[in-house]
Every structure is written in structure tokens, then in C-alpha cells.
Design a protein around this nucleic acid. Structure first.
Length: 365
DNA sequence: CTGATTTGACCTAC
DNA sequence: GTAGGTCAAATCAG
């Protein structure tokens, strides 16, 4: 928070300087342009930080409330799985998105009979995901107003509303920290806008079953309804992967870092155990920190999906598999400085890990 | 050249 | 039979 205050003061000072030199406006337009950029930049960063804090606090409160409510029974495993990480959306780096980590889980029928209720028509931007008992009279909230068809596998769906970009490519689906490949688009009866179908880019390589559908709302052109199906079995996100709540977030404060912070999606992707006690599940980063003390610099990003977070002996390519000689610092550096939305960097990271892993295995044999 | 997107055809649940 | 979901060939973009 001190840093945020500092940024605000810095922005104010820049504005003062600008004001003092206002008479020279005609003579030095470049100077004013640069000053305006700096001021905008400073306040944008302030806005980002404050947005993050609001989200972190709300998220923390909601999570704790949810756990306290006794929802943490075994039948709710999937509820929490579903909160992780797809429901907790990231966003593009555009500050328009920072306005709104506004989510709503609008309908999911849990195996245990619980539902994430939707107010398909009553969504407000300040709402936070709520988990409520399923209402049998309204089995599929997002289709509540019509007699739309309902498939068997709708039980595995979870829908989230996210703000659509308001400039640039308006058709671009909201970024959520994962990489998706579009495999279809279809006009849907009763909707003005077509529905786009995406699957995880790594579906083939990791047999990742995650899919999502993106539908622009009829009543609000600038809102997408994103429906997720299936959990990620891969370990790759477009940002850093995600899994656990950083300790500072767990205690209701913002993770304080110096310089640029990672995208919020990194921190908000959580894994909460269904038991009343919230226990941290070891991630690959915990493993690394244990094996290479000091190398992770205390940063604790999370891993993608719940499978990856289960660092204890998870099979397949997503488990912890860092050979002893792994240049962890390099890896971490690549991970945290890889930009917010390029999937290429992550591909590079993981392909490099794969290569090293293979090399290490060959050496052992 | 490779990987992503588009789009008509096909499959499947209802 | 209808509509939602997926496939896959053609096309596009980097």
C-alpha cells in the first residue's frame, strides 16, 4: 500500500510539474506529451494495484465465508475444483479489464447436488461468485428464460461472465490465463451472437480435456458469458501457472512485490481444500523451493489446474519433474518475466524442461 | 512451413 | 427432426 501511495504522490507531482509549465505548452509539445504519458502510466499502475487489492480482499472474504459455511464436504470437491482456476479469471493487461474482475458463476450443477446459481438476468458488475444450493425449478440458470436444450454433460459446466474488450478487436475472447484453440463457431437459437468453441491448445499433447464456450450476451454487448467444461490436465498457461493462494492473500493483504507485479490471475487462481482446514497443497514451486532453497526468491506462483497442483506423485507430463541440475533460476526468471499473454514463452519454458528432463533421463541410463 | 482459425458437414442428445 | 457440439478440410497468418 505504501508503494501505491508513493505512486499516487508521484503522479500528483508529475501533474504539478505539468501545470507549472503550462505556459510553454505551445513551445514544447513533446515534453507535454511525455508528461501526460508518465502521468497516465503512474495512475494506471495505481488503478491496477487498487483493483487487485479489491479483488484479493473480496476473494479472500468469499473463500473464507464459503469454507466457514460448512461447504467443505467431500461432495464439494468439484465446487472448489471449479473455482480453480477457470472461474477465477485473469484478464488482458488492458486496464479496461482491470476495472472488472467481475465474475459471476452463472450455473453449475454439482455432482453433490449443489449449484453455482446464476442470475442470468440479474448480474451486476459488483457481484462475486456465489455458491448456493441448486434450485430444482431452475436447473440451468443461463437458459432459465427459455426451453433450451440441456445435454447430459451440462453437469460439468461452469459459466462465468466477464467484460469484453471495449476497444481493439471486440471479438477477442477474454484472456483467462490459459491458451485456447478455437475449433468451432455456431449460431445458437435464441441468441443474437454466435457461440465460439475453444479447447485447450495442449489437448493433444497432454490429453487436456478443458474446453470453453464464449458467448456474447444479447443484453450486454460488452459482456461475454464464458462456459468452462473440464479441468485442465496440462501444466501450461499463457501467464504463469497457478494454484495456491499466496500466504499474503490468504491473510487478506496484497502480495507486495517490487516493480511490476504478476498478473492478478496468477495470484487469484487458488486451490482450496474441501476440508475445513485450508491446507496448502505442494506445487512444483514448493518442490523446487524445497529442493533448491533460495532459488525461488519467495515467490510463489501457482500451477495450472488442480492436477498440476497436486505435486505429490502426479503422473504424466505435468508432475514435478525437474532433474537435479535444472537451472531453476533461469526457469523462474523465464516464468515471471515471460509477459502476460504470450503462450510462446511458456511453450519455450516447458519444451526446454522437457528437453532437459529427457537429457537427464538419458544420462541416468 | 507450421499452427491457428473458419466453416460446412457430421454426430449425438433430446 | 431439431439444435448444440465437434470434426476436419480449406484457408489464413506469422
Amino acid at each position: 500500500m505504501e508503494e501505491t501511495r508513493g505512486l499516487i504522490l508521484h503522479g500528483c507531482k508529475l501533474a504539478e510539474v505539468l501545470e507549472e509549465n503550462l505556459l510553454n505548452l505551445a513551445n514544447e509539445p513533446d515534453f507535454f506529451l511525455r508528461s501526460c504519458d508518465e502521468i497516465i502510466g503512474a495512475f494506471s499502475r495505481v488503478k491496477d494495484r487498487l483493483s487487485r487489492e479489491v479483488v484479493h480482499r473480496q476473494f479472500d472474504i468469499r473463500t473464507q465465508e464459503w469454507l466457514r459455511s460448512g461447504a467443505g464436504t467431500s461432495t464439494d470437491n468439484r465446487a472448489m475444483d471449479l473455482l480453480n482456476p477457470q472461474a477465477i479469471l485473469g484478464h488482458s493487461s488492458s486496464s479496461a479489464y482491470h476495472d472488472a474482475y467481475r465474475l459471476e458463476l452463472v450455473g453449475h450443477q454439482m455432482a453433490g447436488g449443489r449449484d453455482v446459481e446464476g442470475g442470468a438476468d440479474g448480474w451486476r458488475g459488483d457481484m462475486w461468485p456465489e455458491i448456493k444450493p441448486m434450485d430444482a425449478s431452475n436447473p440451468s440458470p443461463w437458459t432459465a428464460s427459455s426451453k433450451r436444450r440441456r445435454r447430459k454433460d451440462e453437469a460439468d459446466k461452469i459459466a462465468v461472465r466477464v467484460p469484453a474488450p471495449q476497444m481493439g478487436n471486440l471479438d477477442l475472447p477474454p484472456e483467462d490465463g490459459f491458451t485456447w484453440r478455437k475449433y468451432g463457431q455456431k449460431e445458437i437459437l435464441g441468441y443474437k451472437h454466435p457461440r465460439s468453441y475453444y479447447r485447450c491448445t495442449h489437448q493433444k499433447f497432454y490429453q487436456c480435456p478443458a474446453k470453453k464456450q464464449v458467448q456474447r450476451l444479447d443484453e450486454d454487448f460488452y459482456t461475454f458469458e464464458v462456459t468452462y467444461r473440464g479441468n485442465h490436465m496440462c501444466n501450461i498457461t499463457s501467464t504463469a501457472p497457478s494454484a495456491t493462494i499466496p500466504p499474503s492473500v490468504e491473510h487478506g493483504t496484497i502480495p507486495q512485490t517490487t516493480g511490476m507485479q504478476p498478473p492478478v490471475s496468477q495470484w487469484l487462481s487458488i486451490e482450496v481444500k474441501p476440508s475445513p482446514v485450508v491446507e496448502a497443497t505442494p506445487t512444483i514451486f514448493d518442490t523446487l523451493a524445497f529442493r533448491y532453497p533460495g532459488t525461488m526468491g519467495g515467490a510463489r506462483p501457482s500451477s495450472c489446474g488442480n492436477l498440476a497442483a497436486g505435486g505429490s506423485g502426479s503422473a504424466g507430463p505435468s508432475g514435478p519433474r525437474f532433474p537435479d541440475y535444472q537451472p531453476v533460476a533461469e526457469f523462474a526468471d523465464a516464468m515471471f518475466n515471460s509477459g502476460s499473454s504470450s503462450n510462446n514463452s511458456m511453450e519455450l519454458i516447458f519444451s526446454s524442461i522437457d528437453e532437459n528432463w529427457d537429457t537427464a533421463r538419458e544420462k541416468k541410463h
